[in-house]
């Protein structure tokens, strides 16, 4: 990562997505958020198949179409043109969120502004007075999907920790995050607190601690 003294290495965006994809079981129904989470679909481990759900009403979402083949009525939750794969289905919004709230989607991968030591997630609003509040489906997803994975840089652009004791931004959900994939480490949210499962190459546990706003335990593997 750049801009933090003493840190020359760490995972790239692609490597963070690759690392998260490794923890998704074969055959999972998966919902991917906008940004780095979307890249997970490019790094599915060999031999595994994931079925992608997009909350605007498609199960079996495929990659973006080639230029000129876009259909304005075939889009994902980020409103970008997509395709379907064999076995896909369309459905209305109440069915789509029944899949989410009813516990039928296995894994959701989201971005974050902050994650707390207890797994609280803030990813929808800065709470600034002039901000236009916009939540979309984030609160339904974190309330309904069992495994909530977060992919995020470990610190903000100005070097502030994104993993903190308590979120200062408005919450999306309380105690909802199960695992965090950053450019520096893989961190599990457990009843015992935050546990570092894995360090990025060239990154020390101490460096991760210095850039984290909450206590970390290192798991001896």
């Amino acid at each position: 990562m750049k801009g933090v003294a003493g840190m020359a290495t760490g995972w790239s965006r692609e490597q963070m997505a690759t690392r998260a994809a490794q923890d998704i079981p074969d055959g999972s129904y998966v919902n991917l958020g906008i940004g780095i989470p979307e890249m997970v679909a490019q790094f599915v481990p060999r031999g595994r198949v994931f079925v992608y759900h997009t909350e605007n009403g498609l199960l079996g979402m495929g990659p973006a179409p080639s230029a000129g083949a876009e259909d304005p009525e075939l889009i994902n939750a980020g409103k970008a043109p997509v395709t379907t794969v064999p076995g896909a289905s369309f459905f209305h919004h109440a069915d789509s969120f029944a899949m989410i709230r009813g516990g039928h989607i296995d894994v959701c991968v989201l971005g974050a502004m902050q994650v707390s030591a207890r797994g609280d997630l803030a990813n929808w609003s800065t709470g600034a007075a002039d901000a236009i509040p916009a939540v979309g489906g984030a609160m339904d997803l974190v309330a309904g999907v069992d495994s909530i994975f977060v992919i995020t840089t470990h610190v903000t652009k100005t070097g502030e920790p994104k993993i903190v004791e308590e979120c200062s931004y408005p919450l999306t959900g309380r105690g909802v995050v199960s695992r965090i994939f950053t450019d520096l480490a893989v961190v599990d949210v457990t009843p015992r607190g935050l546990e570092v499962l894995e360090l990025a190459p060239g990154v020390s546990f101490e460096e991760v601690c210095e850039n984290t706003g909450a206590p970390l335990r290192r798991l001896d593997r």
């Binding site: 909350e55 209305h92 919004h93 109440a94 789509s96 969120f97 989410i100 709230r101 509040p133 916009a134 939540v135 979309g136 489906g137 984030a138 609160m139 339904d140 309904g144």
Partner: peptide, 8 residues
Amino acid sequence: LVPQGTLA
């Protein structure tokens, strides 16, 4: 402002 699934 209503969460999307709650709105549906």
